[in-house]
Design a protein around this nucleic acid. Structure first.
Lengths: 351, 351
DNA sequence: TTGAAAGCGCTAACAC
DNA sequence: GTGTTAGCGCTTTCAA
């Protein structure tokens, strides 16, 4: 007796069939809503379904070739505001398209990342979306390329969302945003206020996001015929504490500067507090700018001048493009624009 | 010819078996790592697996009774800092225990919630975790009770994380934190600074979280023999804009108060900006407190006095307790403590 | 319109 | 040790 009869334990399509006095195929057809079924049978089946509170096992369905595959996304830390917004974009678009979402946090450990990707591959996810920047090294490219191939050969697809692209030919969808352009515009704005010694604060030096923004910082200087003092580049990570620590350090060392551009708004928040603690006025004594335009940026005091990044849109597009085409379609590479949001934390130098 | 031979499309355990010159069972045994297999066979199998980049289909595994079921969590909006921290707790603990996580955002719409829960039930998730407060109405209790029963009868389990509990006897795990106690302590602290007209700002009036905090606000007053003016209770929602709008409104109307306690830190952030815009000094002219102790609270200016809630722990416990026991185990109900974090935004009245 | 039967990819009980 | 066989819960031919 393999049949489980009682109320406990999920009921199967055969239980429903028995109760409705039809065959399993008929139940399947009713639930699928496709094939012709007599009104009488349909009614009896639906009643049985309701009475038993039956839901078809999605995994069995999937294995039998029906059902919509899940979407997977992997990020570093869901509590980061930028990550969270990309996640929201992914999640919303997936829901709109009827897909379930699998999610994993790596805490920045590439080994976890690999493990997770294996799991998602085992789940036969329609696509695996890697969210957020990474160290853009040869090792990264090789490892990620291998993941892309492996996913592709399993009928799935890799999507890089806000992450360094791979060498041409890799079966991958890339949705980026313009770190360099945004930083260029922002720093240009700062320089236009007369600042000449602008600190660049935070960000891991080999991280693609930090590098892009730093390139913009440099380019903006050079476009004005300026060559920034290398001492003004202070690296660390992307945390609030890093911004705080670096800022204090710079102040205590007596480093000279009139403005600071932080790698992210979160870093800027820490820096701002350090500035306040030192008794410096922003932007009276020193100007400060961030990057990301996270929600709390406008409630800092002064409201933070920053660069807006369409994070949610990024996530949405990642899903849309990944699902929108078969494996042989052209490999999409999108670059979304950013723009400066001028608020109150940057002022004319000496003003 | 049902066998797909080429490189495209996932390969099956039988493909691996054929390549290694063994039966499918042997492959299964090698991969499962349990049964005795000859070294020779094991080697050949592992080589084939590597060469074909094979990963067993987790869904087929699951359906055959092996594999670890996924965990599901449903929240309103992943970009809310409090939600995000609970999500992190859930996700980390799930990962530690080897479970995958399914995630859904409802945008606060109970219909979406129901839809999602159906999907998770179809996935045969080990547990469905509902994250975040809700309107605690009879309809809520009934609906949620039905969900709990339905999940239980399918061998899954409902977990309420930071959400109103159900009537006794419901097959549900509840992990709450002390909204009322935290608010009581916070408001007591504010009153101790001599404030007598304390605004309570934001939060949907029928939302369990807001209600709990409001109860604490009231209780703290009454414990001092004070009866707060009903006019000082300003309802809305949990957004930054609500805090901003409500605060401006109160100021423009000339409502009298010397301190404001916001329903959340996010609401407090909006209120703080409104205060600044009006030229009022905090805490010189008016004191301000929040609730949640989100990361940006200490980078507001002045740093925000608030109530710390162990959100991540909440999520972690939700997973742990849900998975830790069979269906017939005692129905856990935990209430986690909170504590006031005194920073700089509340001062002695008139100080 | 319907049921029986085969099959999806995997595991596990049962021989050999 | 290893292969054969019989499921897991579902969909989908194929006949009837």
């Amino acid at each position: 007796m393999t049949r489980k009869s009682g109320g406990v334990g999920r009921s199967t399509i055969r239980d429903v069939a028995a109760r409705a006095g039809v065959s399993a195929s008929t139940v399947s057809r009713v639930l699928g809503g496709v094939y012709p079924v007599s009104a009488a049978a349909r009614t009896r089946v639906l009643r049985a379904v309701r009475e038993m509170d039956y839901v078809a096992d999605a995994r069995a369905k999937a294995i039998a070739g029906a059902g919509t595959p899940a979407l997977a996304f992997v990020l570093e830390d869901i509590t980061g505001p930028a990550f969270a917004h990309m996640a929201r974009g992914v999640e919303r678009e997936a829901a709109r398209l009827g897909h379930l979402c699998l999610v994993c946090s790596t805490d920045g450990d590439p080994r976890h990342e690999l493990e997770f990707i294996e799991m998602m591959r085992a789940q036969r996810a329609a696509a695996v979306i890697l969210v957020g920047g990474a160290a853009d090294t040869p090792a990264y490219r090789e490892r990620t390329r291998r993941i892309a191939d492996s996913l592709a050969s399993a009928g799935s697809r890799l999507v890089l969302c806000g992450r360094p692209p791979l060498d041409p030919g890799a079966p991958v969808t890339v949705i980026e945003y313009d770190n360099e352009g945004g930083a260029h515009a922002l720093v240009t704005h700062v320089l236009a206020q007369g600042h000449r010694r602008v600190l660049f604060l935070g960000g891991e030096p080999d991280h693609s996001t930090a590098q892009g923004r730093e390139r913009g910082y440099l380019a903006a200087h050079r476009a004005r015929g300026l060559e920034p003092d290398p001492e003004l580049l202070l690296h660390g990570d992307f945390t609030r504490d890093c911004g705080h620590r670096l800022m204090r350090g710079a102040l205590e060392q007596g480093l000279e500067f009139t403005a600071v551009v932080a790698a992210t708004d979160v870093v800027a928040a820490g820096a701002l507090t350090a500035l306040h603690e030192t008794g410096l006025r922003v932007p009276g004594d020193v100007s400060l700018a961030g990057y990301d335009d996270v929600p709390f940026a406008r409630d800092l005091h002064p409201a933070l001048t920053t660069v807006h990044v369409p994070y949610e849109e990024l996530g949405r597009l990642a899903v849309g493009t990944a699902l929108g085409h078969g494996a042989e379609s052209a490999d999409v590479h999108l670059l979304l624009g950013t723009h400066v949001v001028v608020r109150d934390s940057v002022a004319v130098v000496g003003g």
